[in-house]
Each structure stands twice: as structure tokens, then as C-alpha cells.
Design a protein around this nucleic acid. Sequence first.
DNA 1: ACCTGAACACCGTTCAAGT
DNA 2: ACCTGAACACCGTTCAAGT
Lengths: 208, 208
Amino acid sequence: MTAESTRKSYHHGELPQALREATLAILAELGPEGFTLREAARRVGVNHRAVYRHFEDKRSLLAAVAEEGYRSLAVLLRAAVEATGSPSDVAERLVALCEGYLRFARGEPARYQVMFGPRLNSDGRFPSLELAIQEALLVLREELRKAGPASSSLARRDAGITLWSAIHGFSSLVLTQKVPLSERQLSRYVDTVMRPVVRGVLMTLARQ
Amino acid sequence: MTAESTRKSYHHGELPQALREATLAILAELGPEGFTLREAARRVGVNHRAVYRHFEDKRSLLAAVAEEGYRSLAVLLRAAVEATGSPSDVAERLVALCEGYLRFARGEPARYQVMFGPRLNSDGRFPSLELAIQEALLVLREELRKAGPASSSLARRDAGITLWSAIHGFSSLVLTQKVPLSERQLSRYVDTVMRPVVRGVLMTLARQ
DNA sequence: ACCTGAACACCGTTCAAGT
DNA sequence: ACCTGAACACCGTTCAAGT
């Protein structure tokens, strides 16, 4: 069942990475509720106690995976806006960003739910996690600076939160099947739902 | 510790209601992760197996609580729009609805997280839950009908999903502390974040 | 009809070793 | 330094009774 040949190979700092990968696999297969620390250890072929050498507890392992997720999200969002090939059409770029965001959430729903669920928001643990979130948000704010170069940075921050709220909320409703959405109509429907938000935000920003 | 005097009093269909109340209390005290079926049973003073007489499993009890939550939300939203005293200023009413929504989420965060988290979105179980969600959404769509009486019902549906996404997303980000928000600035900041969405949605609806 | 008790196969986490 | 084994106090759920 487990890969016997790799049993003895986690002696050079490879175990943390192997555990992160196992966590991703479990999340993909069993969802956020199905993840257990013991199953992650089982998959990489170590005693479950070995996990505690590298992660303080279960949440800490999930936080590490979430942090990687935020970095992937930032990369994907940047790629999505660049892929439009429209350096100046900010509305187009923002809608593309939203589509990228939803595709990210949909691609690995359980990971997204860990990233944005209630699991990790305790106290001030995981400061590097907060940092990674802010970096992902930065992509959004850079686009908004192009839209309203004369606007205040506070106004852009608020505009960013509006857009983020809308696309995060939409993704969340789609993931929990409150809003049905097939792959075929995804692009078109993201446009229908998010275009009004983009319009409203850009209008508000232009007035500042 | 537990109320000895109530031990013998669940013989007339009161147990289900008592369990729902205990669930709410546990969610409020310990959060969504802290809820267990056994603790709920403990609090009402019955063996944990007794729960299965009335609820198929743990999820089923949570679903019942979520369903009640959707009904409360619908009532609260209706009250919030009426409290504006502006029968014709739809933008004002929608912003008030958003503030009510956020206050609901904030008032009982764990319950909100159960309602909108990944816990209950399995298969086609709990059809009455879906119904309750749709009823809550109806408040939003009624307001939108006032905004664009000439618009198609499909356009209003989409506009409703846009608004719902934005306020749900904003609530979720506030609840998981991705966006800090103190009680003092709540009203003002809901306006800042949601007004652009309301504007964009109303503009789009008027064009149809 | 409604509730209980014992049992099963799991958890996350702690303590005390092993190499 | 890194991993293991046994133990603890929990879970949700099943089976077979009890009144």
C-alpha cells in the first residue's frame, strides 16, 4: 500500500515537503473534513508522531499548505491579467482576474476552503500566512492603481476589498453549490456576475 | 453540572428543539470545529445515542440549525430594509440590507460559518435547506424588482447573485479576520465597500 | 416509541523512550 | 537530530438491548 521504498528517505528535511504534498492529496480526495494528521503521516510512511518534529500541530501543517496556496494564487492571478493582452483596458483585466480567481478555487476546492475557512483564523498565529494573503491582494491593488492613478491609496484599498469580497463570495457560493455553474458557461457567467462590480468600483475610484 | 431536573422531560418531542438550542450554544461558545454530537447530548442530559432518534447523523442536526438560520436571516433582512423608511430609494435599502446581513453574520459567526461553510453541501440531501436559502435570497430579489421593474427576471436573478456574492464575501472576510472591522466603524465601512456594488448592479439592471 | 450501554474504529496530543 | 510506541481522552456510528 504505502511506498516501502521511501520509508527511510526522510532524513534531509524532505519530510515537511512530503507532508505538505500528502496534505494536498488528502484535501483533494477527501475534502477539508477528511484531512487528518495521522493520514498524512501514513501516506508518507512515518509514524504520526514524526509530524510534530516539523509542525507544531495539525493547524500548523494546514497553515503551511494554505500559505503555499496564497503564493500560487498570486502567480495565477498575475498570469490571468497578463493573458488578456490588453495593457490598458483595466475592466477587461479585472474581469480576467476574477475568472482566474474562480478557476483557482474550483481547481482545488478543498485547499481553497482551508485557505479561506474558519480553521486558521485564530489569534495572531501564522504571521507569514497573513503576509502571503497580502501579497496575493497586491495583484488586485496594482491593477486598481492603473485604473485610478490619481486616487488615494486608501480609496484603492477599499476598492480592492470590494472586488475581493465579490469574487471570493462568488467562488464560495459556487464551491458550496449555492450557485450552480457548469464548466461550459463559466467564462460567460463570471462576466455577467462580476462586470457590474468592476464597473461600480471603477466609477467610484474615478470620482475620488 | 448538567441540569438534573430536566433529565426526564424529553418525552413529547421537545428533545429535537433542545438539541438545536444546545447546538447553537456550543457553536457560539466553541466555534464550528468545537461542535460535537456528544456534547450536544450531554448538555440536554441525554445519552448521545438518543440524538439518532431524531436526527439521522451529525450533519443532519447541523442542517436543521442552518435551516433555522436561513429563516432568521430572511426575517432580519426584511426588517433591515423596512427600517430605512425609504420605500423608493432602492440603493439606500440595498445598502441597509447589506449592513443587516453583516450584522447577522457577526452576531453569530459560528452559525453563519455552518450555514455557508463546506459542511453541508453534499449531494442532494436536505432539500428543505435549499428551500430556506432561496427564501432568504428572495428578499434581495424583491428589492431588485423595485429597482428595475422592466428588467427580465433572469437579469434580476444575476443581479441578486452579484450582490449576494459581494456581501457574503465581505462578511466571510470580516469573520475570518482577513479584513479588520471594529463595531464603531461598521456602518460607515459597509457603505464604503458595498455602495460601489449597489451602484454597478443598479446601473446594469437599468440598462436591460 | 423512545432511550441506554457497551463496543468499534478512529482522532489529536502528551510522555517517555529508542537510534 | 529525528523518529517510534504506548497511552489518554476524546470522536461518530453500529448493534443489541432495555422500559
